Deep mutational scan, measured.
Amino acid sequence: MQFKLIINGKTLKGEITLEAVDAAEAEKKFKQYANDNGIDGEWTYDDATKTFTVTE
């Protein structure tokens, strides 16, 4: 399945997509990506659109 991450950071904004088996795997990958890029914020997930959002 394809999942999307919307980044609303203080210095980094944008979207990325990835393939994952389920939402838990996608969340783990997205949070690792955010951590690697210094993004720390409030996370939400919309199951209907398979979209994660992180807002700093």
Rank of each mutant, 00 (worst) to 15 (best):
M1C: 04
M1S: 06
M1V: 11
M1P: 07
M1F: 11
M1L: 11
Q2W: 13
Q2T: 12
Q2S: 13
F3T: 01
F3L: 01
F3W: 14
F3P: 00
F3E: 00
F3G: 00
F3M: 02
F3D: 00
K4H: 06
K4G: 04
K4S: 07
K4A: 13
K4C: 03
K4E: 03
K4Y: 07
K4T: 04
L5H: 00
L5G: 02
L5Q: 00
L5I: 03
L5T: 01
I6D: 02
I6Y: 10
I6A: 04
I6S: 04
N8W: 05
N8Q: 08
N8M: 15
N8S: 11
N8D: 04
G9A: 13
G9K: 05
G9V: 06
G9Q: 08
G9Y: 10
G9H: 13
K10A: 12
K10C: 06
K10D: 05
K10E: 04
K10M: 06
K10N: 12
T11E: 04
T11W: 07
T11C: 08
L12K: 10
L12S: 07
L12C: 03
L12R: 05
L12V: 12
K13Q: 09
K13W: 12
K13L: 09
K13R: 12
G14D: 05
G14E: 04
G14P: 04
G14R: 14
G14C: 04
G14S: 12
E15D: 11
E15I: 06
E15K: 07
E15R: 09
E15V: 06
I16R: 12
I16Y: 15
I16N: 03
I16W: 09
I16L: 13
I16E: 09
I16Q: 08
T17K: 07
T17N: 10
T17C: 03
T17M: 08
T17D: 10
T17H: 14
T17S: 13
L18E: 07
L18A: 11
L18F: 13
L18M: 08
L18W: 14
L18Q: 08
L18C: 04
E19R: 03
E19N: 04
E19V: 12
E19F: 13
E19S: 12
E19H: 10
E19P: 05
A20Q: 03
A20K: 02
A20L: 05
A20M: 05
A20H: 03
A20F: 14
V21D: 14
V21T: 07
V21Y: 13
V21N: 11
V21R: 06
D22H: 13
D22S: 14
D22W: 03
D22P: 01
D22L: 05
A23W: 13
A23R: 15
A23V: 13
A23H: 14
A23C: 04
A24E: 14
E25I: 14
E25D: 04
E25Y: 09
E25F: 10
E25K: 06
E25C: 03
E25Q: 09
A26R: 00
A26E: 00
A26H: 00
A26M: 02
A26Y: 00
A26N: 00
E27A: 15
E27G: 07
E27C: 07
E27H: 13
K28G: 06
K28A: 10
K28C: 04
K28I: 13
K29P: 02
K29D: 05
K29E: 04
F30A: 04
F30N: 00
K31I: 06
K31Q: 05
K31S: 05
K31R: 09
Q32C: 03
Q32P: 02
Y33P: 00
A34G: 08
A34R: 02
N35G: 10
N35D: 12
N35K: 10
N35E: 14
N35Q: 08
N35M: 11
D36C: 08
D36A: 09
D36S: 10
D36W: 12
D36I: 13
G38Y: 10
G38L: 13
G38W: 12
G38P: 02
G38M: 10
I39T: 03
I39G: 01
I39H: 04
D40L: 11
D40I: 06
D40H: 13
G41T: 01
G41M: 02
G41V: 02
E42S: 05
E42T: 13
W43S: 01
T44A: 13
T44K: 12
T44M: 12
T44W: 14
Y45S: 02
Y45E: 01
Y45H: 02
Y45W: 11
Y45L: 02
Y45G: 00
Y45C: 02
Y45M: 02
D46M: 08
D46Q: 13
D46N: 10
D46R: 04
D46E: 11
D46T: 07
D46G: 02
D47L: 08
D47C: 10
D47A: 09
D47N: 15
D47P: 15
A48S: 09
A48V: 10
A48H: 05
A48K: 12
A48N: 15
A48M: 09
T49E: 06
T49Q: 06
T49D: 14
K50H: 11
K50Y: 11
K50F: 11
T51F: 05
T51L: 04
T51P: 00
T51M: 08
T51K: 04
T51R: 03
F52N: 00
F52C: 01
F52W: 08
F52D: 00
F52E: 00
F52Q: 00
F52R: 00
T53I: 12
T53H: 09
T53M: 06
T53C: 04
T53P: 00
V54M: 06
V54W: 02
V54H: 01
V54S: 01
V54G: 00
V54F: 07
V54K: 01
V54Q: 01
V54P: 00
T55A: 09
T55G: 10
T55Q: 14
T55C: 04
T55R: 14
T55N: 09
T55S: 13
T55Y: 05
T55F: 13
E56G: 04
E56K: 08
E56T: 06
E56Q: 13
E56D: 05
E56Y: 13
